[in-house]
């Protein structure tokens, strides 16, 4: 398919760009503004240069939150990606059961984030919650003051919430594999594992790239669900980057430091997104579409 070179194409983008100008570009520039200034009594601003950045980069709270956020993302990816692939491979391929299961597994994805947190908060209550009561019946109290238990709870909650995303994308990817591939593998006498490794997995590349990108980003920005369950505690053990940022900017009302955290946060998002974008939409393919 050929794309035409057209310098008037910008007119098609104009409405969308005007909207994100208000809803993203101007707010982001405001954040940049905060990050290089200090304000007194709201009205007077002073140039601070890189002061806030130096202060944030030297702050143990910031590193703590960053490390916790990255660890949480790594943990949920390690659980959700293999589990999602496994379920997708073993998912009923067609028929009523397939349609029913697809509808059911999508429900957690469409649950408001606050309600996700609420469901899990209740689930671990010692007397009213299923998990809390089960733990009590086994004689181990469900201790939400233990950081390990809290982390496992959040990882379970996030996996309950989002593993289906990986399943849906991989399932769609698997369905797109032509049947002839499986026949060829069968003729070669390939084992179940060989079929997975040499036929299915390579064809899941795009689905997995998108799934990992989305799961990384959405877990890296986690706020509401985790806050409802843990309020960032015990201590600061589940205070993630978004919590740290909102805490700094709205509770301590430290706009300069909040701005600097925001910029660093945004740069991480930008770099990771770019890495994935260049894999999802390689430049070569774009150019072969005919840059005349």
């Amino acid at each position: 398919m050929d794309k035409r070179q057209n310098r008037y194409a910008y007119f098609y983008l104009l409405p969308a760009i005007s909207v994100v100008l208000v809803s993203a570009i101007i707010p982001l520039m405001t954040v940049v503004n905060y990050s290089v200034q200090d304000s007194f009594a709201g009205g007077n601003f002073f140039w601070m240069g890189a002061y806030w950045f130096e202060s944030v980069l030297g702050s143990r709270e910031f590193y703590g939150a960053l490390v916790r956020s990255l660890s949480f993302s790594a943990l949920v990816l390690l659980i959700q990606v293999p589990l999602g692939i496994y379920i997708a491979v073993h998912f009923p391929a067609k028929g009523f059961l397939s349609a029913l299961y697809l509808v059911l597994i999508a429900i957690p994805l469409l649950t408001p984030w606050l309600v996700v947190g609420y469901i899990w908060k209740v689930l671990v209550m010692p007397n009213a919650g299923l998990l809390g009561a089960a733990a009590r019946a086994l004689g181990i109290p469900y201790d939400m003051n233990n950081p390990v238990v809290v982390w496992l709870t959040l990882a379970a909650m996030d996996s309950w919430h989002w593993t289906s995303l990986v399943v849906l994308l991989c399932f769609a990817g698997l369905r797109a594999i032509p049947h002839a591939y499986y026949q060829a593998a069968q003729i070669d006498g390939a084992s179940r594992w060989a079929v997975f490794w040499h036929v299915q997995l390579p064809r899941l590349r795009l689905a997995l790239l998108i799934a990992i990108l989305l799961r990384f980003m959405d877990s890296f920005m986690i706020y509401t669900e985790a806050y409802v369950v843990t309020r960032g505690g015990p201590g600061v053990s589940t205070t993630f980057l978004s919590h740290e940022l909102v805490q700094t900017a709205t509770v301590q009302f430290d706009l300069g430091e909040g701005g600097a955290i925001s910029i660093i946060y945004f740069l991480i998002v930008l770099c990771v997104s770019w890495a994935f974008f260049s894999l999802i939409r390689p430049r070569d393919r774009a150019q072969s579409k005919g840059y005349s």
Binding site: V20, L28, V31, S242, L245, G259, L270, V272
Partner: peptide, 16 residues
């Protein structure tokens, strides 16, 4: 546009 989708709402909270 993709990068905006990936931006954490917390970043835009205060300017909003």
């Amino acid at each position: 546009f993709l990068a905006l989708r990936m931006t954490a709402p917390a970043i835009l909270l205060i300017p909003f």
